[in-house]
């Protein structure tokens, strides 16, 4: 991995400055079945193609943001704040 990511605050930086958390997951509620919790904690889709991910600018501004990354070629990223997620999803639907 040697690609670059764009931090919404700091701009394009080497991926080594960032920490990856996981693909974006929905946290179950406490009323949900335990099976759902186990899947939330342990299972990942490992999608081949574009996926939404959490990244943290550990070696920089220390903010969390979302990246849509193509896991096939690691290029063609799009970074944005979590608060803009709904807006981004809506735009994508229209597009």
């Amino acid at each position: 991995m040697s690609f670059q990511l764009s931090c919404p605050n700091c701009g394009k930086r080497a991926v080594g400055e960032f920490a990856f958390r996981s693909e974006v997951l929905e946290r179950p509620s406490q009323d949900d079945d335990f099976r759902k919790w186990a899947e939330y904690v342990y299972l990942r889709r490992n999608h081949r193609g574009k996926q939404l991910e959490w990244w943290y600018h550990r070696g920089g501004c220390q903010s969390w943001f979302l990246v849509e990354r193509d896991t096939v070629n690691n290029t063609d990223h799009c970074s944005f704040w979590y608060k803009d997620l709904q807006q981004v999803l809506a735009t994508e639907k229209e597009g």
């Binding site: 959490w54 550990r58 220390q62 903010s63 969390w64 979590y82």
Partner: peptide, 14 residues
């Protein structure tokens, strides 16, 4: 300490 800081920041983001 860094892991806990980042975890707090994540929850405050979400």
């Amino acid at each position: 300490q860094d892991a806990i800081m980042s975890m707090m920041m994540w929850w405050l983001t979400v």
